[in-house]
Design a protein around this nucleic acid. Structure first.
Length: 493
RNA sequence: GGCGCAUUCGUCUAGAGGCCUAGGACACCUCCCUUUCAAGGAGGAGACCAUCGGUUCGAAUCCGAUAUGCGCUACCA
């Protein structure tokens, strides 16, 4: 490759980072890293109404969280800066002047209401609206008249009305449109700020982008932009249009589907490496078998020619499954480190836990390790290890096919075992309790179930003896004692 | 309405003319393991490859039309 690959992500800070854009970011980043190229971040902040600093910060955080890094960008600068469009206004102004000077663009004084009226007319007549070029050839007098009225002109770009425009898309192949379909687009708004289709062309050229990889909602914009490139004497980059990410209902993915911003996924306890892996599979595949890839493997194997053309529905279920697999793959220590913030968030562990508390967490975590799918679930799964007081319905102590009396006997047996066992560990607890089932005429499931409820306050929990061993003798004794008082009086259920 | 893009199990996908009576994964069902829940193991069901027509000895793969979905049609990006 003669020229070093340069690609970019150009987010607009009008909201948090959406997973669709995160996937676009990922593919650009993978393309750059795979080819030893440069990945740059440019902020398209020309939408003055909706752009905020907070959104920018959030977007950068989300990108970093995902594990992406950039070589040039708003926070680190670079040789092609500035990386905010609002700081590049002079560049756009000069380009617009050039187009005006060589007759490729013209000032248009039509007001928004006037334009809207024209659109309505076109719609009523059932014909496609094309800007009629009313301001294309204004006389000096007319211009003076408009200026006197205080009208601020926009700058419109003249697109050729004859012929066709074709470009080769890296993933769709050749795409052709009739120029007669294209409209004279406004490139500079009346406040002097350039529109997307203009600013992007100039930035991509001056920043020397070799490839523009973006969502396929931009396919229709591309021919227009190509004309702008040509009018400016620029050579367009290569284009690659990625399929969209949809919700399971095939509608655009939004918070209605549960989550759409990457911050949402982080908060729910998805691992960034799982997120990256899953996102990579949305629209790209390696072969017909393999679907787990580390960050390095993705870089190594990513090939834009293996990106599909069809919109992909985002499956929360599959993400969850994949996340669970990644969680299970964590070392015990890594799991503690990752889960701790969620335990603290839930108020189960103190903000700066002393060694003893940390040691306890380290004992608890292995018991839920393979049951965890999302880190945020850790609180729900382990709270009884940390809470002093258990809240539950005493009726749960009486299992299926049992009488309250049998439950009482079971609890008393457990109480005796807890008190008498020499060493409070799994083997001795099991040796002392398991035989009781037969003696009491209960199945082990019934016996253990009753004790489980007593000790954890729930019917679903990690294996009983391991749980008890971690809880410790005192806590178990206290909880069994309490369970005895919660037992429903008499009467089988 | 016009134009563009897309169309393989519910979902993500493999498939680049014969290897496909279409393979894998998630979800689903059954069984095994088992102390509940997970995890794991073994099976199963699930796609007439949107439809119709054409090219070809042969098509999921090539061509055309139709249908459907999505996108663009902004002084938003």
């Amino acid at each position: 490759m003669a020229n070093r690959v340069r690609v970019r992500l150009a987010p607009s800070p009008t909201g948090p980072l959406h997973v669709g854009r995160a996937r676009t970011a990922l593919f650009n980043w993978l393309f750059a890293r795979h080819n030893g190229g440069v990945f740059v971040l440019r902020i398209e902040d020309t939408d003055r109404q909706r752009s905020t600093e907070a959104n920018l910060v959030s977007i950068l955080d989300s990108l970093r969280w995902l594990g992406l890094d950039w070589d040039e960008g708003p926070d680190i600068g670079g040789p092609y800066g500035p990386y905010f469009q609002m700081q590049r206004l002079e560049t756009y102004r000069q380009a617009a002047e050039r187009l005006l000077a060589n007759g490729a663009a013209y000032k248009c004084y039509c007001s928004v209401p006037e334009l809207e009226a024209m659109r309505q007319e076109a719609k009523a007549a059932k014909v496609a609206f094309r800007y009629p070029g009313r301001c294309l050839r204004l006389t000096r007098e007319q211009i003076a008249q408009f200026e006197a009225e205080g009208r601020r002109p926009v700058i419109r770009f003249i697109v050729p009305k004859e012929g066709t425009t074709t470009f080769r898309d890296m993933i769709h192949g050749d795409i052709t449109v009739n120029n007669s379909e294209l409209d004279d687009l406004v490139i500079v708004k009346s406040d002097g700020i350039p529109t997307y289709n203009f600013a992007a062309v100039i930035d991509d050229t001056t920043m020397e982008m070799t490839h523009v990889i973006r969502g396929d909602d931009h396919i229709a914009n591309t021919p227009k932009q190509i004309h702008v490139y040509r009018a400016l004497g620029y050579t367009p980059p290569e284009f690659g249009h990625l399929p969209m990410i949809l919700g399971l209902d095939r509608a655009k993915l939004s918070s209605r589907h549960g989550a759409a911003a990457v911050t949402d996924f982080a908060a729910m306890g998805y691992l960034p490496e799982a997120m990256m892996n899953y996102l990579a599979l949305l629209g790209w595949s390696y072969d017909d078998k393999r679907e787990f890839f580390s960050r390095e493997e993705l870089i190594k194997y990513f090939d834009i020619s293996r990106v599909g053309k069809t919109g992909a529905a985002f499956s929360m279920q599959k993400l969850e499954w994949m996340n669970g697999a990644y969680v299970r793959g964590l070392s015990p220590d890594a799991l503690v480190v990752r889960a701790l913030p969620f335990l603290q968030e839930a108020g189960l562990v103190s903000a700066s836990p002393p060694p003893s508390e940390l040691a306890y967490v380290r004992q608890v975590m292995p018991l839920v390790h393979e049951r965890l799918k999302r880190l945020a679930e850790v609180a729900e799964l382990t709270d009884f290890f940390f809470k002093e007081q258990l809240e539950y319905d005493g009726a749960l102590l009486v299992g299926k096919g049992m009488t309250a009396d049998q439950s009482r006997l079971a609890l008393e047996a457990a109480q005796a075992a807890v008190a008498s066992v020499d060493v409070f560990n799994v083997p001795s607890l099991e040796a002392a309790i398991r035989p009781q089932a037969e003696r009491l005429g209960l199945s082990t499931g019934q016996l253990f179930g009753t004790i489980r409820v007593a000790v954890t306050g729930r019917t679903v929990a990690p294996p009983l003896f391991e749980t008890m061993a971690v809880l410790g003798r005192e806590r178990c004794a206290r909880r069994i004692q309490q369970a005895l008082t919660k037992l429903p009086s008499g009467i089988p259920r």
